[in-house]
């Protein structure tokens, strides 16, 4: 069955392409320090505002920092935030969703109303409100993005729990005397994995968008950290003199987001061929 999923996924060329781009970025993030030509924080005022050259493939900024090196180190921060916040969101969202779906009734009502209210804050607004409470910085950005992503996971898990709960095999487990915890961890969660994987992949892209957006506004990761959004914010000021400082991280965000959504779409088609069309 798993082989079939992989086979179906490989059939979609654009998704495979997206997957390769993501792998490339992840490798960059891991081995960044080995490949980056310069220290991303190293200032060299004599070398500022440089264009593309063999020394600086993507030029330098106003402080003479190498843009390519900053971009490479930025991959670490941006992908790191994205993975960590989606991981956190998965834990919270799945717990909420399972609790709501499995126990139903008042618990369900309470949790889902709460989720509804979170969803009533459109787009980046929720993340901004959370940062307003917690303050800026790397960890708070992660938390803000995580909470922003919780509602989607909670909803998906809840609906698949509800549809699973009444199936015969869960009834059978219950009749066999399995505990709730056991049923949930051994049966319900594994069975709602497909939609979760798809959603998590799609949300990884969104997480980068939101986190970089916060940093761009000055509410997320702070300079001189080479987070992509923070770089863009800095690049906005240098648009006239060294546009590459903005273009490089912007293009990186676009490619990563695009790739995650291509992979997510591919996974959806591969995991659930019925959903297609």
């Amino acid at each position: 069955m798993d082989q079939q999923v992989i086979k179906r996924f490989l059939k979609r060329k654009v998704s495979v392409f997206g997957g390769l781009i993501i792998i490339m970025f992840i490798l960059t993030a891991i081995f960044g320090p080995l490949v980056a030509p310069y220290d991303p924080l190293q200032q060299n005022l004599a070398n500022s505002y440089k264009g593309i050259s063999s020394d600086h493939l993507l030029g330098t900024d106003n402080l003479g920092r190498d843009t390519l090196s900053r971009l490479i180190y930025g991959a670490r921060i941006s992908l790191g935030i994205s993975l960590a916040s989606i991981g956190l969101a998965l834990i919270i969202g799945v717990s909420l969703g399972v609790t709501a779906g499995y126990y139903g009734g008042r618990v369900d009502n309470l949790i889902m109303r709460f989720v509804d209210i979170l969803l009533a804050f459109p787009g980046i607004l929720l993340a901004i409100a959370i940062v307003a409470i917690l303050g800026n910085g790397l960890v708070n950005t992660m938390i803000a993005v995580a909470i922003f992503s919780v509602p989607d996971f909670a909803r998906i898990v809840r609906s698949s729990v509800i549809s699973l709960k009444e199936t015969e095999f869960i009834e059978a487990c219950r009749a066999a005397g399995a505990s709730d915890i056991r049923i949930i961890t051994k049966h319900i969660i594994p069975n709602s994995l497909s939609p979760l994987i798809v959603q998590a992949t799609l949300m990884l892209g969104t997480a980068i968008l939101i986190a970089s957006g916060l940093s761009f506004l000055g509410l997320g990761v702070q300079p001189p950290n080479p987070e992509w959004g923070a770089m863009l914010s800095q690049g906005r000021e240098l648009l006239r003199s060294s546009p590459l400082v903005a273009i490089a991280p912007g293009a990186a965000i676009t490619f990563v987001v695009l790739s995650f959504s291509l992979v997510g779409d591919g996974l959806r088609d591969a995991l659930d061929p019925k959903l297609k069309n």
Binding site: G229, G235, L239, P243, A246, P249, G250, T254, V257, L258
Partner: peptide, 22 residues
Amino acid sequence: SLLSVSTPSYFLGLLLMLVFSL
């Protein structure tokens, strides 16, 4: 449409500014 969905607005805005204004 795929590109426009993936490009963050804060990047697109800077690109447009770069091309059409600067």
